[in-house]
Design a binder for these strands. Structure first.
Lengths: 222, 222
DNA sequence: GACGAATTGGACAAGGCTGTCTAAAAAAAT
DNA sequence: ATTTTTTTAGACAGCCTTGTCCAATTCGTC
């Protein structure tokens, strides 16, 4: 063990720190001003670097934007899979565990900074430059849905749920989760933990009304 | 009957035609280029008027944008209420009638031109200029949800549904309807009638699994 | 400490856009 | 038919932005 050189990228220092700083500032400015309205000088200032450094690192505005999109989509996909790893495969109390899972998903994938950025980036440039998001579409939502569907299928197999089509159930689960978050999210409103918890709770209640086991009566098993 | 003077505004002619044309072109250009990227010359050209006419009618770019937002939000709200008027208050076959209603809603409020414009406008400027959408928020989704909740409550009272909170059920109904449309809509993809019908169908099936009457068992009553 | 790479701040040209102004033309109203 | 209003095309100033270039400076590393 020679702690002299640190080959790992644990503390992003030096060039990497600047690069991340620029991507971060780029995400902020692009999202709030739009691509055309975004000002490279402002991005450089917010990143704490000179404009020339931005051009040195990314070439031009469009390439910077593409890099920002790549960074955000990667982070969002990683975040979604991280939360997916906390799915309650062996639930003690199904409703509670699913609700907690939903809360984690909302907090880490929808209401967080990257989630907001991703939504805005897609809305801004999804139609004009779909190729920027092509890899995200197949590696992000597509895979996340499949993975969640597999978890639901396992729960159904174990007798916790009554599901015909796990893929449909997975997509509808997300949709129900987002029900009351969509409009506030559009206007950048920050949701309190209480609101998030309430949204998750009523979503899971409805989800279980639709997909919970029929024979075993609802909330009072014992 | 003196058809010499036409006080009504039935055929939008003259100034009104130009105004609508400008609002229309403005919506197209603002939505595809963003506010900062939108070019007044291009809007004027697409509207078939001179740039000066745009300035004469709306003052400046921001006022034109506000007028576009007002026009689109008004149209979307009106469209939503028009579809709401076709709700099956006395369903012959609940699932079929609700599915048809959902299809009408998708076609006329989500997948139509104004629906697309509204989503983009909100995403672009909702956070920066929430006041532009304040009246829409209370008069649009808020009222539509309430109205749909009232219809569901009536169906529940008539014994067709089993609903605890009609407001929640109404919002979740919309949410389920949009499940499979969100991402394609983001990328401007046009949905076939088949896809729309399928989305509506599986949404209504799940909705009825959650909120259909309990005692009258679903598909396998025996 | 010394070297090379990266960074900085500023100046700079080229281009685009907004918003105003004007005189001519067209449209509408009387 | 005439008068009034609206529309048009074009020119124009002012401003902002992108992207490049360059000399001076700082940073990371040996």
């Amino acid at each position: 063990m020679k702690p002299q050189t640190v080959p790992d990228i644990l503390p992003p220092r030096g060039q990497m720190a600047k690069r991340l700083s620029m991507l971060d500032a780029g995400a902020r400015v692009f999202c709030s001003e739009g691509f055309a309205g975004a000002n490279i000088d402002l991005i450089a200032a917010e990143a704490g670097v000179s404009r020339q450094t931005v051009y040195n690192n990314f070439g031009d505005k469009e390439k910077l934007f593409a890099a920002v999109v790549g960074e955000i989509t990667d982070r969002c996909t990683a975040g979604a899979f991280a939360v997916l790893g906390t799915f309650p495969d062996h639930p003690k109390h199904l409703e509670t565990d699913l609700t907690d899972f939903a809360i984690r998903f909302i907090r880490n994938c929808i209401c967080d900074r990257d989630g907001k950025f991703l939504r805005k980036l897609i809305h801004m440039e999804g139609e004009r430059h779909p190729e920027l998001f092509a890899s995200w579409r197949v590696g992000g939502p597509g895979k996340v849905w499949s993975a969640l569907a597999a978890r639901f299928a396992r729960l159904a197999f174990a007798g916790f749920l009554d599901i015909d089509d796990p893929d449909v159930a997975a997509r509808q689960f997300f949709s129900l989760i987002f029900t009351d978050l969509q409009i506030p999210a559009l206007f950048g409103e920050v949701l309190s933990d209480k609101e998030v918890a309430r949204s998750a709770r009523i979503a899971v209640v409805t989800f279980l009304r639709a997909y919970g086991r029929r024979e075993a009566g609802g909330e009072t098993p014992g």
